[in-house]
Amino acid sequence: MQELADLVMPLSIGIIMFGIGLELRFKDFRRVFFYPKSVIIGLASQIILLPLTALVLVYFWPIDPVYKVGIMLIAACPGGTASNLVAKVLKGRVPLSITLTAFNSFLILFTIPFVVTLSFDLFAQESQQVDLGFWETMKEILLTVVFPVLGGIAVSEMVSDKTRESFHKPLNYILPGIMLLAFIIVVFFDNSNQDIRYLENAHLLIPLIILNILTMLIGFFTAQKLKLKHKTAYTIAIEMGLQNSVLALYISNELLSNDKLSLIAILYSSFSLLSTFGIALFLKQYGTKTATEN
């Protein structure tokens, strides 16, 4: 069953990204690159504000030091592909979301080793190095995000506007369904998720939930303060809320061989998709709207 879980997740991500690409065209990314303010603010929020928020939170939170390192690891792994789907479902700026995911996948090669090493020095009183393989990471992001999106956009460019419009409604049901199916398979069949007693770990869930909510609010209001449009602000909030828990789990298990660190990644992934969707929906509906163009 573990083999099934290992196969389903990357395959599901690829299909979802292809489906998202079907509703886009290359011109949709023009604004992102010609007016990069939203990209710069989004990346700065994820790479700088997110770990800083986690650092302040765990510094004062009374938990075992190794769990503090685990929360810092989660904060250092921004931009899971699920954020692209949530941005699509909530009609956020999907090209911005995809662009942030792609850029983050490169930047974390440098930021994760720095954050994790610093966290061990601060909290665990020991030094431990993390070395993310450049080509392995690039291959993963190319195969699961970049190539599927480009393939979907290529198909979108070749069909008529009427045909492209016909994709919208079924994809709104199909893509979330695929994500839900993948989530269920990973939760119930991935060996790393077995025997997790959530009630016994409530003291760890509380700071993780606070981190999720707090970082989304910080991302949203920072974007608005810097005069980004409402749609851009809640898209950045989505990116702040959904971390790459799969990557955090891989680092915990394969690179650091630490079950306590992997527990934090599992706990965060167990609620963050639903909580991020709910908070982003609230911000979309009730957040203060700004009229300034970015």
Results as ranks from 00 to 15, higher is better:
17 M>I: 07
246 V>D: 06
143 L>K: 08
164 R>G: 06
146 V>Y: 14
152 G>A: 10
113 P>V: 13
67 Y>I: 07
235 T>K: 03
276 T>L: 00
266 I>K: 13
268 Y>D: 00
256 L>I: 05
51 P>H: 00
7 L>P: 08
32 V>C: 15
98 I>Y: 01
293 E>P: 01
195 D>P: 03
248 A>G: 13
113 P>K: 07
103 F>D: 14
121 D>E: 15
54 A>F: 02
253 N>D: 15
147 F>S: 01
52 L>N: 08
200 E>G: 15
119 S>Y: 03
166 S>E: 05
159 V>E: 00
128 Q>Y: 08
161 D>T: 09
46 Q>F: 03
191 N>R: 08
166 S>G: 03
152 G>S: 12
73 L>F: 05
237 A>K: 00
286 Y>D: 03
24 L>R: 11
246 V>L: 08
108 I>T: 12
152 G>I: 05
105 S>C: 12
235 T>A: 07
97 S>H: 04
13 I>K: 02
290 T>S: 06
160 S>E: 15
37 K>V: 02
277 F>S: 05
199 L>N: 14
111 T>C: 13
85 L>K: 12
259 D>P: 03
160 S>K: 12
128 Q>G: 10
131 D>Y: 07
265 A>Q: 07
199 L>C: 09
115 V>T: 09
105 S>H: 14
77 C>F: 13
100 L>E: 00
60 F>L: 09
242 L>E: 09
209 I>P: 01
131 D>S: 13
48 I>K: 02
45 S>V: 10
226 L>N: 01
139 K>A: 10
123 F>M: 07
177 G>A: 14
170 P>C: 12
266 I>M: 02
232 T>M: 05
53 T>D: 02
55 L>R: 01
288 T>Y: 12
140 E>K: 11
112 I>V: 14
130 V>N: 11
166 S>W: 01
248 A>D: 02
152 G>M: 10
72 M>P: 13
123 F>G: 11
129 Q>I: 10
32 V>P: 15
138 M>A: 15
213 I>P: 01
31 R>G: 13
109 L>Y: 14
42 G>C: 06
160 S>A: 06
104 N>A: 11
192 S>Y: 07
79 G>S: 07
142 L>P: 02
239 E>T: 00
236 I>C: 00
212 N>L: 01
72 M>W: 06
105 S>V: 04
194 Q>V: 03
176 P>M: 11
110 F>A: 13
33 F>E: 05
233 A>F: 03
200 E>W: 01
126 E>Q: 12
278 G>E: 01
146 V>N: 04
96 L>G: 14
25 R>F: 09
86 V>S: 05
9 M>V: 13
145 V>P: 00
190 D>I: 08
285 Q>C: 07
246 V>G: 11
132 L>W: 15
273 L>M: 03
254 E>C: 04
242 L>S: 00
30 R>C: 05
59 Y>L: 11
177 G>T: 14
200 E>N: 11
275 S>R: 02
147 F>E: 01
57 L>C: 02
187 V>N: 09
103 F>A: 15
59 Y>N: 06
217 L>K: 01
282 F>L: 11
244 N>Y: 09
256 L>V: 10
